[in-house]
Amino acid sequence: MDVVEIVKALGDVTRLRILNLLNKETLCVCDLEEVLKISQSNASRHLTKLRFARLITGEKQAQWVYYRVDETSLERYPFVRELLAKELVNEQACQKDEVRLRKYRELGGSCERTVHITE
Score class of each variant (00 low, 15 high):
residue 66 Y to L: 11
residue 62 A to G: 14
residue 43 A to Q: 06
residue 71 E to K: 15
residue 69 V to R: 04
residue 35 V to T: 01
residue 54 R to E: 13
residue 61 Q to Y: 15
residue 67 Y to C: 08
residue 34 E to G: 07
residue 42 N to R: 08
residue 47 L to I: 11
residue 45 R to Y: 06
residue 32 L to T: 06
residue 38 I to P: 00
residue 72 T to W: 03
residue 40 Q to T: 14
residue 37 K to F: 04
residue 61 Q to V: 15
residue 44 S to R: 10
residue 40 Q to S: 12
residue 53 A to L: 09
residue 42 N to V: 08
residue 41 S to F: 04
residue 67 Y to A: 10
residue 51 R to G: 09
residue 63 Q to K: 08
residue 66 Y to T: 05
residue 66 Y to H: 13
residue 56 I to E: 01
residue 55 L to M: 14
residue 55 L to W: 09
residue 39 S to Q: 01
residue 58 G to H: 13
residue 45 R to K: 10
residue 41 S to W: 03
residue 65 V to K: 09
residue 67 Y to W: 15
residue 62 A to Y: 13
residue 41 S to Y: 04
residue 64 W to N: 11
residue 51 R to Y: 10
residue 71 E to Q: 15
residue 35 V to A: 03
residue 52 F to N: 15
residue 48 T to K: 14
residue 58 G to Y: 12
residue 35 V to N: 01
residue 47 L to H: 05
residue 66 Y to N: 06
residue 55 L to S: 11
residue 65 V to P: 00
residue 32 L to M: 09
residue 65 V to M: 05
residue 51 R to V: 07
residue 35 V to Q: 01
residue 62 A to R: 15
residue 43 A to D: 02
residue 49 K to N: 12
residue 33 E to S: 10
residue 57 T to R: 01
residue 51 R to C: 07
residue 47 L to R: 04
residue 54 R to F: 08
residue 72 T to N: 08
residue 50 L to N: 10
residue 41 S to P: 01
residue 35 V to L: 02
residue 42 N to Q: 04
residue 51 R to D: 07
residue 68 R to F: 08
residue 69 V to P: 04
residue 66 Y to A: 09
residue 49 K to W: 13
residue 47 L to Y: 10
residue 57 T to P: 00
residue 39 S to F: 00
residue 67 Y to S: 09
residue 42 N to W: 01
residue 47 L to C: 03
residue 71 E to L: 14
residue 47 L to N: 02
residue 55 L to T: 13
residue 70 D to L: 12
residue 35 V to P: 02
residue 59 E to A: 13
residue 39 S to G: 11
residue 63 Q to M: 01
residue 48 T to A: 09
residue 52 F to P: 04
residue 72 T to D: 10
residue 68 R to I: 07
residue 45 R to N: 02
residue 48 T to L: 14
residue 67 Y to V: 05
residue 44 S to N: 06
residue 46 H to K: 07
residue 52 F to M: 15
residue 71 E to F: 10
residue 54 R to C: 10
residue 65 V to C: 05
residue 32 L to W: 07
residue 59 E to N: 13
residue 64 W to F: 12
residue 56 I to K: 05
residue 42 N to E: 06
residue 45 R to L: 07
residue 54 R to V: 04
residue 45 R to G: 00
residue 53 A to H: 05
residue 41 S to I: 05
residue 39 S to M: 00
residue 69 V to I: 11
residue 49 K to I: 09
residue 48 T to D: 08
residue 69 V to H: 07
residue 57 T to N: 02
residue 58 G to K: 11
residue 37 K to R: 11
residue 42 N to M: 03
residue 45 R to A: 02
residue 46 H to A: 02
residue 65 V to A: 04
residue 71 E to N: 12
residue 42 N to S: 12
residue 47 L to Q: 01
residue 48 T to M: 10
residue 32 L to Y: 06
residue 60 K to L: 08
residue 50 L to T: 09
residue 35 V to M: 01
residue 41 S to Q: 04
residue 70 D to H: 11
residue 43 A to L: 05
residue 65 V to I: 14
residue 72 T to Q: 08
residue 49 K to P: 03
residue 53 A to F: 05
residue 41 S to M: 04
residue 39 S to I: 00
residue 70 D to S: 14
residue 40 Q to E: 13
residue 51 R to T: 13
